[in-house]
């Protein structure tokens, strides 16, 4: 499908969502061209034939700024975010909806790039975008583009979450903090340059490979997005009679993320990731699981970083390299760069 270049009109003009004919056609022509003819709803809803039984269904909205960043853009983020939310439930992601809110004045060239990256991300993850909608808001009432994606995943074999027990291992699929720090260091007032990239990636392949080989030993999976690893572990231990203990030396963090976190006074364990999964697994298969993950391109830095114990029931703690321990509480507010 050849992407057309000679767009007479450069920007999205008013009067689209409300049926403004000319611009409406242009947008839907472009979306259909790039995302496929059924990604735009012709009649009132898409009809899908899904074998009976349980499905996983999720939705999320994406408002990241800047909309383009090293390692991806808001479109790739929207597709992978929903794919990962389905995959960590043990479901096979199958169908996606994609609704767009465009700000009047948003340029077509960027819009086209984002649609292309959504198409490529859907292709890589093996999901189909089956329905969608577009609305345009007056200039100043939005920030270029917002995307909402919903997704349906099919449960091939019944995978439910098993009871977490003391001795279970905590595994992460790679370096932490890449996405959040990439976005933060792009803010104009922070003059840091590094070749750090967002880790935005589809994890359904990696997860299905792990489930195929070790179906019985996965106790829990979650992608560590907003709030980072520490938030996921706190959600797991809250109110339970066990604690999650992790070891500082075993936690994969890239040099650049360490560097920028030092400069800004941030803790990478609380920074958002967009392509990392936290897995709680039974101890005997943990090494095997990590080896499977390492063979996948998105899991090459996978590592066991700690285990479930009963030292501080209901809490998460970290053992520092000198052998001291400190709690990793749930932080409700977003970290701000600080100098003291």
């Amino acid at each position: 499908m050849e992407e057309s270049k000679d767009r007479a009109i450069k920007k999205i003009l008013p009067g689209h969502g409300s049926g403004g004919k000319l611009m409406n056609d242009m947008i839907s022509v472009m979306i259909k061209e790039i995302l496929g003819k059924d990604s735009i709803q012709i009649d009132d809803s898409a009809v899908l034939d899904i074998a009976s039984g349980k499905i996983a269904f999720t939705t999320d909205s994406y408002t990241v700024t800047p909309i383009f960043f090293p390692g991806g853009d808001i479109g790739k983020l929207a597709v992978n975010g929903t794919v990962n939310d389905l995959a960590v439930m043990g479901a096979v992601p199958a169908f996606l909806s994609c609704s767009l809110i465009l700000e009047e004045g948003f340029d077509f060239e960027s819009f086209e790039k984002i649609l292309i990256s959504m198409r490529d991300a859907a292709g890589e993850a093996g999901v189909k975008i089956v329905t969608g909608d577009t609305k345009v808001v007056p200039n100043g009432k939005g920030d270029k583009i917002y995307i909402n994606t919903s997704g349906i995943g099919i449960f091939k074999n019944e995978v439910q979450r098993r009871e977490i027990k003391k001795g279970d291992k905590i595994i992460v699929s790679g370096t932490l903090g890449d996405h959040g720090i990439t976005i933060m260091s792009l803010r104009n007032d922070l003059r840091f340059s590094s070749d750090l990239k967002s880790d935005c990636a589809p994890l359904n392949g990696l997860i299905s490979e792990v489930i195929a080989k070790y179906p019985e030993s996965i106790k829990f999976m979650r992608d560590a997005t907003r709030g980072g690893l520490a938030s996921v572990l706190n959600e797991i231990t809250a109110g339970k009679d066990y604690s999650a203990g992790i070891t500082e030396d075993d936690i994969p963090v890239s040099e650049e993320v360490k560097g920028i976190c030092n400069l800004l006074g941030l803790d990478p364990l609380y920074v958002a990731n967009e392509g990392k999964v936290v897995i709680i697994a039974s101890p005997e298969d943990a090494d095997g699981i990590v080896n499977v993950m390492k063979s996948n391109q998105y899991g090459k830095d996978s590592a066991i970083i700690g285990e479930i114990d009963s030292l501080y029931p209901g809490k998460v703690y970290i053992k520092t390299f000198i052998g001291g321990k400190r709690l990793l509480p749930l932080l409700i507010e977003e970290q701000l760069p600080r100098i003291c």
Binding site: D267, I318, K319, T320, I322, G323, G324, K325, R326
Partner: peptide, 9 residues
């Protein structure tokens, strides 16, 4: 002192 775990020693 807290973050490095030194206080814990």
């Amino acid at each position: 002192f807290f973050r490095t775990g030194v206080k814990d020693l």
